[in-house]
Amino acid sequence: MLTKRIIPCLDVKEGRVVKGIQFVQLRDAGDPVELARFYDEQGADELVFLDISASSEGRKTMVEVVKAVASELAIPFTVGGGINSLEDMKRILRAGADKVSLNTAAVMNPELINEGSNFFGAQCIVVAIDAKYDEDWGTWRVYTHGGRTPVDKRAIDWAIEAAERGAGEILLTSMDSDGEKKGYDLSLTRAISEAVSIPVIASGGAGNAAHFKDAFTEGKADAALAASIFHYKETSVEEVKQFLREEGVSVR
């Protein structure tokens, strides 16, 4: 039976993890490899690295980070942030990442999804969607540039288009729930998950283990991503999985 995935997300800036785990006895809490290993040992099913470097130097550093992580870890990982072209995808995937995540670049140039999917296969291409409920539209709207720019696209339509263009997975972040720790946006997650035939990763709002269960059952998500709840030790991947097991959700 296929299990539900728990995915910690790490923000990397100029090759260093920011908002890293401050509690564990790590030699270097900013070292992406060390943190990756820590989450692997806790039972994380996959990792997402989000490159938030502002400079092209930082982007180059990310390639080294990817190489180092891929050398050490035997679990899949995705890299997002700053991937704007087929060349960028090649650099990251050839350095050993399993998937790249496209966000703003895919909205600006949807053909990029087709190019990446044709070149590397759909399994390598994740389309990340930042969505926020729009009262006037009566549905969720797509935002780009880290949630700063509203776009004339309904999130559901964009997810369907991305899947048709060859995305292998949707990483769906609810801007309404993000940072609130009150749980994932279940209606958004469910709406997108039911609209596409590819897996959907729920993101934004995890505050406790029960929220993960809700994302999988009510939200129909295939995987759930979280950052600060893990980094600040409000819970651990192990604890979340133990809870899910007790609640009858199948996990690794």
């Binding site: 039976m1 296929l2 299990t3 539900k4 995935r5 099913d45 759909a122 399994q123 292998g168 997975e169 035939s197 590819i198 897996p199 295939d222 995987a223 690794r252």
Partner: peptide, 18 residues
Amino acid sequence: PGTKKDSAYKVPHMGWNG
């Protein structure tokens, strides 16, 4: 096929399976 007994399931088969 993506469907089993009239109910749809996700393709690709992606993730950890026993």
